[in-house]
Computed example of a mutant assay.
Amino acid sequence: MEEPPPDVALGDRSEEEVLAAVLPAFAAVPGVLVGPGDDAAVLDLSPGPVVATTDSMVRGQDWVDAWSTARDVAAKCLTQNLADLAAMGATPTSLLVSIAADPATPLAWLVDFAVELGSRAAARRVGVVGGDLSSASVGTIVVAVTALGRLDGRDPVCRGGAAAGDVVAVRGSLGRSAAGLLLLQRDGAGPDPAYPDLVAAHLRPEAPVVDGVVAADAGATAMIDVSDGLLRDADRVGRASGVLVDLERARLEPFVAALRGAVGDEAALECVLAGGEEHSLLAMFPGPDDVPTGWAVLGTVREGRGVAVDGVVTAPRGWDHFAG
Rank of each mutant, 00 (worst) to 15 (best):
A147P: 00
A114T: 10
C77H: 06
T140S: 08
V115I: 12
A86N: 09
A74N: 07
S134R: 15
V115W: 14
M88L: 12
A66H: 02
T140P: 03
D62G: 13
S94W: 00
L174C: 13
G131S: 06
F113G: 10
L133A: 05
I141Q: 09
P106H: 04
N81L: 12
D155E: 10
D112E: 15
A123W: 13
R125I: 12
G175N: 05
S98T: 14
S119R: 05
T105A: 00
A144D: 07
A122S: 13
G180H: 01
V73L: 02
R176T: 07
R154F: 00
S98C: 08
R176F: 00
V170G: 15
C158W: 12
V167Q: 01
A86M: 11
D155N: 11
L182Y: 10
A101L: 09
S68V: 01
A169I: 13
L181C: 12
G149S: 05
S135Q: 12
S94C: 14
A121G: 10
V145Y: 05
K76A: 13
G149V: 04
V115M: 06
A121H: 12
A70P: 02
D166S: 03
G160N: 05
A163Y: 11
G180E: 09
G131H: 04
D62E: 05
L95Q: 03
L95K: 01
A122N: 08
A75Y: 09
S98V: 13
W63G: 04
P92A: 02
W67I: 02
G149Q: 08
D62M: 07
R171T: 08
T93N: 02
A123H: 10
R125Y: 05
T69E: 06
C158N: 07
A136K: 06
R124N: 06
R120G: 03
D152K: 04
T93H: 09
T69I: 05
P103M: 02
T91L: 13
V157Q: 04
G180A: 03
A70Q: 00
W109Y: 13
F113K: 07
R71C: 04
V73Q: 02
G160W: 08
V73R: 01
G127L: 07
A163N: 06
R176G: 01
I141D: 11
G139T: 14
S135D: 15
A147S: 07
G180Y: 05
I99A: 04
V126D: 01
F113M: 08
G180K: 02
A104T: 10
S68M: 13
G175S: 08
S98P: 03
G127V: 09
P106V: 01
A179T: 01
A90T: 03
L82R: 00
T93W: 05
D65H: 11
V111C: 08
A108V: 12
L117W: 12
S94A: 15
G172Y: 06
V97D: 05
A123T: 07
P106R: 11
A169H: 14
G161C: 03
M88H: 14
F113S: 09
V111E: 04
A121W: 13
V143Q: 03
V170S: 13
D152S: 11
G127D: 03
A114M: 11
A162D: 10
A104I: 04
G149M: 09
D166K: 07
T93E: 02
G180V: 00
R71F: 03
R124A: 10
L182A: 14
D62F: 14
A75F: 02
G160A: 09
G130H: 04
S119P: 00
A87N: 06
L82M: 02
L110S: 08
R176W: 01
V138G: 10
